[in-house]
Design a protein around this nucleic acid. Structure first.
Length: 224
DNA sequence: AAGCACAGCAACCGCACGCAA
DNA sequence: GTTGCGTGCGGTTGCTGTGCT
C-alpha cells in the first residue's frame, strides 16, 4: 500500500503544506492526485493530499456545528441511504462526507443507541428496511455525451429543491465529482426517464441511480 | 495546578470500482 | 479475461482540546 511508504510525512498538516497544496490545485485544478505531491512539493502521499483538500482546504466548506434542519435532513438521508456519507454530504450544502460521518458518530449515534436497544426488544416485530445503496460512481470518459451536457446543465439547490444559478455552472468536469450534482443534472438532461423505470444493460443503465434520486426527493419531502 | 476522562475532529488505512493496456 | 493504475469511499484510529475532580 502506498501509504505504508516510510518516507512520506504523516500526521497533522502545517500551514506551509496547506499553502503549497492550495496553490498547486489552484494552478492545475483538482484531479491527477498522483501528480499533486510532486507538483506541490509536498512530502505527502496523494491520498493524504486529496483528503486534506476535500475535507479542509476546498473553498465553500462550512465549518462549525450543524443546524437543526441539517441534522434533520441528515437523519432522513441516513434512514434512506445508510452509511453512504458521501451521498449524504452531497445533499448537505458545503458539508464534507468526513464532517457528516464524524457528526453522526459523535452526536447522532449516541441518540440512536437507546432507540436501538428498544428496537432489539421488539426484534421480532421489525420489518426489514430496504436501505438503498447505489454504488459510488465516477464519471466515465466514455460518457462524453453526458459530460458535455453536464457542464452546461443548470445546477440544482437540494435544499430549496429548486434550480438555481450557482458556482457549479462554472465548474469544470473534473470537479463534478460530487454525486448530487451529477445526479441532479442528469435528471435535467434525461427528463424522459420515469420513476420506477428499469433499464437494459445496454440501455441507459448508467442513469439507474438518477431515477433513484428522483425517488429520494419524493421520499424526503413527502415525510415533511 | 495537576491528573484524568471524555468528546470532537483530522487523518490514516484498507478495500472496491472504473478504466486502459 | 487479466492486470495494474488512479481514484473514491467508509471504517477506524489517534491526537488535541476541554471539563471535571
Amino acid at each position: 500500500m502506498e501509504g505504508s511508504s516510510s518516507c512520506v510525512r504523516k500526521g497533522a498538516w502545517n500551514e506551509e503544506e496547506d499553502i503549497l497544496l492550495r496553490q498547486c490545485i489552484e494552478k492545475h485544478g483538482e484531479g491527477n492526485w498522483y501528480k499533486v505531491p510532486s507538483r506541490a512539493g509536498i512530502n505527502r502521499c496523494r491520498k493524504s493530499c486529496r483528503l486534506r483538500w476535500l475535507n479542509y482546504l476546498r473553498p465553500n466548506i462550512k465549518r462549525g456545528g450543524f443546524k437543526e434542519d441539517e441534522v434533520d435532513l441528515m437523519m432522513r438521508l441516513h434512514k434512506l441511504l445508510g452509511n453512504r456519507w458521501s451521498l449524504i454530504a452531497g445533499r448537505l450544502p458545503e458539508r464534507t462526507a468526513n464532517d457528516v460521518k464524524n457528526y453522526w458518530n459523535t452526536h447522532v449515534r449516541k441518540k440512536e443507541i437507546p432507540c436501538i436497544s428498544n428496537m432489539k426488544e421488539k426484534a421480532q416485530d421489525i420489518v426489514k428496511v430496504n436501505v438503498i445503496k447505489p454504488r459510488p460512481r465516477t464519471v466515465s470518459k466514455k460518457l462524453t455525451w453526458l459530460c458535455d451536457k453536464l457542464t452546461t446543465a443548470e445546477s440544482f439547490d437540494p435544499v430549496n429543491k429548486d434550480h438555481v444559478e450557482g458556482d457549479h455552472e462554472k465548474a469544470p468536469l473534473s470537479t463534478i465529482n460530487d454525486e448530487p450534482n451529477r445526479v441532479l443534472r442528469a435528471e435535467k438532461i434525461a427528463p424522459e426517464i420515469k420513476i420506477g423505470d428499469t433499464f437494459d444493460e445496454d440501455g441507459p443503465s448508467c442513469l439507474a441511480d438518477f431515477s433513484f434520486d428522483m425517488n429520494l426527493w419524493d421520499f424526503l419531502y413527502a415525510e415533511q
